[in-house]
Design a binder for these strands. Structure first.
Length: 429
RNA sequence: GGAGAGGUAGCCUAAUUGGUAAGGCAGUAGUCUUGAAAACUACCGCGGGUGACCGCUUGCAGGUUCGAGUCCUGUCCUCUCCGCCA
């Protein structure tokens, strides 16, 4: 959520920023009048409240003094206040709701150093690590490799659940589990994150807080239960909302959480994209990194979080590149995002395996997550960051494809050996 | 699922037949001190205002009332017991 005071004072630059994000700047056409109306109605309602409070206090004093007749007269004189107050409160609620509706639909503003552009073609590569391996045989993709090794069964997954689901078997399931444990261990032991295991179902307030609602309802799996529950599309939702509606001590920042969870996405609107294999599923495993930090430290923390995610690929020996997303390619809540893309030999290209975003105070304002500096003063909004560390299913793909051997078996990367004792490669059984 | 008890600011605890949230701890600043502690003074839920001040706040949402922590209805959460269950 954008700061209404900021929007009021920077209306034109906000308009420009929205256009850069492919959002219609016309959403702001009614901001000024709506804002003025809201403040006018609010102060008027305050005035009537004041009047009413004073009258009630006087009546109370008269009653205690035993002057019941004067109290009764006073009561009669304030009889009309109640209706006026009800009217004004109704107006105020409507004005507040209208402003909230307007603001809650606006995306975050891009940071100043985000490249301007309409879509992913304007993303800028900022670094590259590792060298794609040269194969002296014809490479297969993870679907062929996995199916032939009987570690991946997409056909039966389609029967049991539907399309965009997968079943991992044997050493394939083992590899997935090894990756999860490996990632959690690196982030908790080396990178200083606190492991947390959140609910996989969240309420609507949490989804509003991180920005999935109100605009992206169709991306979610929502339960028919009357409580408005949804399956989490990412652990970012339950973990970032952990301190919703709280005022934190500045000394407790930064907070660094790592969570492994399954994620559920309806992928409505992505028909025809990435339909083959494990790339885009309705259910996938992810290890997520989340930070809450001081505003002045979020850029530094963002760089560090991205490096923490990259570290996993380095340890696994998987070539990757890191790009900064353009204004047109960023997600709703982000002010700056780095995508980490891993090399996939079958596609001869780099594919997204992690997205690391600095959300500034955008989510914190929606969630009401604030902190107080030592020495007192007004509470301020924290900055929130999140990033995949990493998407486990896509890491599985990258390992299988990059470590494939001429006979169709998969070598296990050194870093994973402790997690798959006794298994040096996955071969046909 | 059934029965009961509860929810007051970061924590703990009050509030006459309804009369407008008292106090303690922790915390921050200051006085004193070589320094610290202790003691003392001030601040110490949220928002707005340069300010005197104003509005909001007893889990949440309604209702009754001039006035609700208190009375009524609904709802969420926690705890205890029973049932069920991994």
């Amino acid at each position: 959520m954008l700061d209404p005071n900021y929007v009021r004072e920077n209306l034109e630059s906000v308009r420009t920023a929205l256009a850069a994000r492919n959002f219609s700047p016309e959403a702001l056409d009614h901001f000024a009048e709506l804002d003025a109306e809201r403040r006018r109605v609010n102060s008027e309602a305050d005035d009537v409240n004041h009047e009413r409070n004073n009258a009630s206090k006087e009546i109370g004093a008269l009653m205690q003094a035993g002057k019941t007749e004067e109290a009764t007269a006073k009561k009669a004189s304030v009889a009309g206040l109640k209706e006026r107050q009800a009217e004004l409160e109704k107006l105020r609620d409507e004005a507040d709701a209208a402003m909230r509706e307007l603001l809650s639909g606006l995306p975050n503003l891009p940071a100043a150093d985000v490249p301007f552009g309409a879509d992913e073609s304007a993303n800028v590569e900022i670094r590259r690590w590792g060298t794609p391996r040269k194969f002296d045989f014809e490479v297969k993709d993870h679907v062929d490799l996995g199916t032939e090794l009987s570690i991946l069964d997409l056909e039966r997954a389609a029967k049991v659940a539907g399309s965009r689901f997968a079943i991992l078997n044997g050493d394939g399931a083992r590899l997935e589990r090894a990756l999860i444990n490996f990632m959690l261990d690196v982030h908790t032991r080396e990178n200083g994150y606190k492991e947390t295991q959140p609910p996989l179902i969240v309420n609507r307030d949490s989804l509003f807080g991180t920005g999935q609602l109100p605009k992206f309802e169709e991306d979610l799996f929502t339960l028919t239960d009357s409580r408005g529950f949804s399956l989490i599309p990412t652990a970012e939702v339950p973990v970032t909302n952990y301190h919703r509606d709280e005022i934190l001590d500045a000394a407790s920042l930064p907070m660094k959480f790592v969570a492994y969870t399954p994620c559920f996405r309806s992928e409505a609107g992505s028909y025809g994209r990435d339909t083959r294999g494990l790339i885009r599923q309705h259910q996938f495993e992810k290890v997520e990194l989340v930070k809450l930090c001081l505003p002045e430290e979020s850029e530094k923390e963002h760089e560090e979080l991205t490096a923490n995610a990259e570290r996993i690929l380095q340890l696994l020996g998987l070539p990757y590149r890191t790009v900064v997303l353009s204004t047109g390619d960023m997600g709703f809540s982000a002010r700056k995002t780095y995508d980490i893309e891993v090399w996939l030999p079958s596609q001869q290209t780099y594919r997204e395996i992690s997205s690391c975003s600095n959300c500034g105070d955008f989510q914190a304002r929606r969630m009401g997550t604030r902190f107080r500096r030592s020495g007192g003063g007004k509470p301020e909004y924290v900055h929130t960051l999140n990033g995949s560390g990493l998407a486990v299913g896509r890491t599985w793909i990258a390992v299988v494809e990059n470590y494939q051997q001429a006979d169709g078996s998969i070598a296990i990367p050194d870093a994973l050996r402790p997690y798959m004792p006794g298994i040096e490669q996955i071969s046909k059984v």
